[in-house]
Design a protein around this nucleic acid. Structure first.
Lengths: 159, 159
DNA sequence: ATAGTAAGTTCCACAATGGAACGCACAAGG
DNA sequence: CCTTGTGCGTTCCATTGTGGAACTTACTAT
C-alpha cells in the first residue's frame, strides 16, 4: 500500500493517517497549536529540512488543515494558520500528550502541564461517550460496520 | 532530527511519535484492537511487506506496546497481544477515527460505528477535563512548562 | 516422500529524506 | 546604486528507508 492509497481505504484511521501519518506532520501541527506560523520559525524550531517542510506545509494547505494568510504585501509573505479542520485535530494531539506523559516519562515529570480555564484546575484529558458522558473503556465499545463499509461492499459486488 | 532523537525530546508528542509515528504502526495497532494477533494475519490484512511487518512488531514488543504470547509449542509459535501500555493507545485511535469520520468522509458515511455498552447508544468519542468533566476546547486550555521542561533546562545550564 | 503452514530473513531495485547550496524579491543602510 | 539582510522557497546529491519476491526453518498432515 502506498501513501495515496491510504486515503481510499474504507477506514477512518487510514484516512486520518493519510493526512497526519508521517514523522513530521504532527510536530508541525504541535507547533502550529503553540502559535508558530512562519516558515522560518517552523524550520528553526523543528530542525526539519527546508525541502521537507515546504512539501509538508503545501500538503497540509492542499488538505485544508492549514491556510495561508498574507501578513505583508511587498514582498508578499504568508503565514500558515490552522483552519477549523486543523483545530479539530486538537483531541488527537492532546491524547498523544496524555499517553506520552504517562508512558514515556524519562523520570523528570511532564514536559508541559495544562490548566483548564473553565474550572481553573490542572487536568488530564479524558475520553467520554457523547451520549451518556461516562469515561470510555475499550472493552465497553462494540464496533459495527457502518454505512461507509456497506456502500463499499455494494460497489465491489456490482463491479 | 532522526527517529532515535525523537524519543529524547522534552515533548510528549515527540516521544509518542517515536513509538507510533510512522506509516504502518497505527494500522498494525488498529488491527490489534480488532483482535488480529498473528504475523500472517497482519500481513494479509495490511498488505505490508513481511520485512517491514517483522521490524515494526519487533519494535513494538521492545517498547512494551505488544507482547509475544506462545499459542503452540511445537513448533513454537507466538501471537502479538496488546499490553496495558498498548491498550492505553485506544483514546488516540478513537480520536483519529472521530476526525476521519468528520473530515475525510467520501460521501458514504462512517466506515464503522460504535455502540457504548454502558448506555446502549451509538456514540462519538468526546474529550473532557479530568477535573470538571466539561468538554475541552483548545482555546480554554493554558499550557505551561512542566517539571520535565524545567529539569531539562537545569541539565542544559549545568552542562 | 510430498505438500502445507507459520513466522520470519535475505536481497535488490527504487523511493524518500537530510543537508547544504542556491535563487528571488524586496528593504534598509551607506 | 551597491551591498547586506530577510523570508521563503527550490535544486541537487549522497544516504537511508521501503516494497516485493524468493528463500529458510521447523514442524504437521496425508
Amino acid at each position: 500500500m502506498r501513501w495515496e492509497e491510504l486515503q481510499e481505504e474504507t477506514c477512518s484511521v487510514a484516512r486520518t493517517l493519510s493526512v497526519i501519518g508521517d514523522r513530521w506532520t504532527l510536530l508541525i501541527l504541535r507547533d502550529a497549536f503553540l502559535r508558530v506560523r512562519r516558515f522560518e520559525d517552523f524550520q528553526k524550531k523543528l530542525g526539519i529540512s527546508r525541502h521537507r517542510l515546504s512539501e509538508r506545509l503545501k500538503k497540509l494547505v492542499a488538505q485544508g488543515v492549514l491556510k495561508k494568510v498574507e501578513y505583508q504585501s511587498s514582498p508578499p509573505r504568508y503565514e500558515y494558520r490552522l483552519t477549523e479542520k486543523g483545530l479539530d485535530l486538537y483531541p488527537i494531539i492532546m491524547m498523544m500528550v496524555r499517553w506520552g506523559d504517562k508512558w514515556m516519562d524519562d523520570g523528570n515529570g511532564a514536559p508541559m502541564v495544562y490548566k483548564h480555564q473553565g474550572c481553573g484546575e490542572y487536568f488530564v484529558p479524558e475520553i467520554s461517550c457523547s451520549e451518556c458522558h461516562e469515561p470510555l473503556k475499550p472493552r465497553e465499545v462494540m464496533p459495527e460496520f457502518g454505512p461507509g463499509t456497506l456502500a463499499a461492499r455494494r460497489r465491489k459486488k456490482n463491479g
